[in-house]
Amino acid sequence: MTIEVDQDACVGSGQCVLTAPDVFDQRDEDAIVELLDAAPAAGQWPAVRNAAAGCPAAAIRVGA
């Protein structure tokens, strides 16, 4: 699995950080998303998919 985040689209909601804290973080200064792990292990995949589906800005793209 590969993950891309669109920092321009991100509205800093922190939903992804709550859903998959090992994969997503928020920058301290503006709360915009930061990717901690662009190719996470399979155990993380369900959480990542939920984070992508739940992102209120559609800023997370999950590839194969």
């Binding site: 800093g12 909601s13 922190g14 939903q15 950080v17 928020q26 301290d28 200064e29 503006d30 709360a31």
Partner: peptide, 14 residues
Amino acid sequence: MRRLLTPAFSAKRM
């Protein structure tokens, strides 16, 4: 407004 407020209420701070 978002720039000023979102960091103060970020998931990490909460």
